[in-house]
């Protein structure tokens, strides 16, 4: 990917969106002489689940950590729930929940004790027992944090992130290391949080996860957001020709067509019965994503 390096003093093109949960204009973060984030613009609406995709080193985690108030920035304007994270105080922190990639650390406390302590930092927390129920850890209420399995630990991390009743929840690679069943359980947890009105910013390496959960996805490469779209439309996926494949005369045949229904009808007329090995495929989110980040699938 070739990107022209943006001048740091680049003027924001449009003002920050005051109604957005997260609004970013021209965000720049430098490490040494490298721009890890290089003029990034982003708006996340209230109530939406937004997935940030991108290869390692693209600036995903750096961007999220600027939004979370963990890192300072070198340029640009940022508003998270209407507040600049660089000056966000306890009041602001009370409205956001953070599930870190690294988790919340080891503990000798039980799950219920950890949640009860965490709830005490917030003005209007959820009931810790209800949160345990929500993440499916009720039977582990009296188990110590460090005795949990990997997947249970991650669910405890999520519980700690939501016990303060945040309006905005950051989830940094929440399901890494989950088995398929645990991921499906986690997805339904996220959907129930959405129903409670929580805005979520999710980073993930799993494209099926982004497709399953996100209202919109953004792809970040080389420190810039290259596209934002609903999962079905990303990379022109919605308009991309479908690929019809079948077997004829012992050979595999494929045809890319913008009108797959008509094409298949034509095929059906040519064959007496079933069209052998018929398949119609659209490019997957993974196909368009890999294309966008400049690796051929």
């Amino acid at each position: 990917m070739s990107t022209t390096p943006a001048p740091v003093a680049e003027q924001p093109t449009t003002p920050l969106d005051p109604d957005a949960a997260i609004s970013v204009r021209g965000l720049v973060k430098r490490y040494g002489d490298r721009n890890a984030v290089d003029g990034l613009d982003l708006d996340i609406r209230r109530g939406e689940i937004f997935a940030l995709l991108g290869p390692n080193g693209a600036g995903k985690t750096t961007t999220v950590e600027v939004l979370e108030g963990y890192r300072s920035r070198d340029g640009g304007d940022v508003a998270v729930l209407g507040v600049d994270p660089a000056s966000g105080g306890r009041r602001w922190r009370a409205d956001i929940g953070i599930v870190l990639q690294s988790g919340a650390g080891d503990s000798q406390l039980t799950c219920l004790e950890l949640l009860t302590a965490q709830a005490a930092y917030y003005p209007d927390p959820r009931d810790p027992a209800e949160v345990l129920e929500l993440v499916g850890l009720t039977e582990k209420a009296r188990a110590r944090g460090r005795s949990l399995s990997g997947g249970q630990r991650r669910r405890l991390d999520v519980a700690l992130g939501i016990v303060g009743k945040p309006a905005l929840l950051f989830l940094d690679e929440p399901t890494t290391g989950f088995d398929p069943e645990a991921r499906r359980q986690f997805w339904s947890l996220i959907r129930s949080l959405r129903e409670l009105g929580t805005t979520m910013l999710l980073t993930t390496h799993y494209l099926d996860e982004a497709e399953e959960l996100a209202d919109r996805v953004g792809v970040i490469t080389a420190g810039r957001l290259v596209e934002v779209a609903v999962p079905a439309e990303l990379g022109g996926r919605g308009q991309a020709p479908a690929v019809v494949s079948w077997t004829e005369d012992g050979a595999r045949r494929t045809e890319a067509t913008p009108t797959p229904t008509a094409f298949v009808a034509g095929l059906a007329a040519r064959f007496p019965g079933e069209v052998p090995d018929l398949a119609v495929a659209r490019p997957t989110l993974e196909d368009v994503y890999l294309q966008m980040i400049g690796q051929s699938a």
């Binding site: 979370e68 953070i98 919340a104 003005p123 303060g164």
Partner: peptide
């Protein structure tokens, strides 16, 4: 040192705990 390297401190500093 343990709490700093295992993420406990980072987690706490992301909460409204004074």
């Amino acid at each position: 040192a343990t709490e700093r390297s295992d993420g406990t401190l980072k987690h706490l500093s992301g909460t409204p705990m004074p």
